[in-house]
Design a protein around this nucleic acid. Structure first.
Lengths: 156, 156
DNA sequence: TCAAAATCTTAATCTACATTAATGCCTGTG
DNA sequence: CACAGGCATTAATGTAGATTAAGATTTTGA
């Protein structure tokens, strides 16, 4: 259980690595993401203070995701370990978040997904680029720009 | 830990219920799904022999999903319990499946998602209607029909 | 501090998938 | 048996969001 300092832009994990660790964020902001065959990045999740970032695969399987720092950050590294009640609680919470994400992706439009994101993670909305929000929502930055315009119209 | 028989079409859990149980499938086939504001069903997952179906929310929160039987089935009902190693293993596996699903939904086309489904769950592909496969993939039955046609063309 | 690179926005065009509708096929039920 | 309701397929038309392109603004780094 050691403390690690990660500079903005530094990569903590690559797809294909063997990595049995989870990272608890003490300060800063990280992201996990995949890169598809066309070279496009898709942000899987953000992790700010208090959250855990990790690949959700068994400890002995190769990783599916990349993890890097969006801001200079400090994380605590631990082994994946489900024997402790506290750890398990966090994983249940993560499962709930993922379930909601799948339902969102299947049933909601880009506008609805954006509004849900802003409502649920107002802090993160302020700290990341439009480009990254779009990547998390599964749309292009151009489409997100349009969504925001339409949204302002609606509010009047 | 009791054994329950569920007839085809019978509902085991409704959205909004309080349900601290998980169901291990002994025989048959079940599904969990959500219904959006427009009344459209979205299949979240299928569960055949050996799998577990449950809502991935904390034991004391209201459910997000419906669960019902696609075939006459027998399940074993248990409390959500993460103190046992075996249970925890299943949950890690589920987390991995969900992670892959999110990445799929964000980065793959309807054709790619269909091929992945057929490759990964060939047994289930045989046992459910096209309508349900489409619902799982997040597309309409009409679009699925087209995808399959295009696919046959490509193979020639 | 200044040039190069990355980000954001707007607009035109394109495309994958949705919607609507029509037809034939099963399947269950009075 | 008959026929009513659900399922699958095909085809036409519609639309959300992708792609491409161009310009304005910010960030980066030598």
């Amino acid at each position: 259980m050691k403390k690690i300092e990660i500079k903005k832009g530094q990569i903590l994990q690559r797809k294909g690595d063997l990595n049995s660790k989870v990272y608890q964020v003490k300060s800063g902001l990280l992201r996990s993401y995949s890169i598809d065959e066309k070279g496009k990045e898709h942000i899987f999740m953000f992790a700010s203070e208090g959250w855990i970032v990790a690949d959700n695969v068994p400890p002995d399987s190769p990783c599916e995701l990349f993890i890097d720092a969006i801001e200079n950050s400090i994380v605590v590294e631990r082994e994946k370990d489900f024997s402790k009640e506290r750890e398990v609680q966090k994983f249940i919470k993560r499962l709930g978040v993922l379930q909601k994400r799948v339902i969102m992706l299947m049933s909601a439009s880009a506008i609805e997904r954006y509004e849900h994101f802003v409502d649920t993670y107002p802090d993160i909305t302020q700290r990341v680029s439009q480009r990254m929000i779009a990547s998390y929502l599964g749309i292009t930055p151009e489409a997100l720009s349009k969504v925001k315009g339409d949204r302002k119209q609606r509010q009047k």
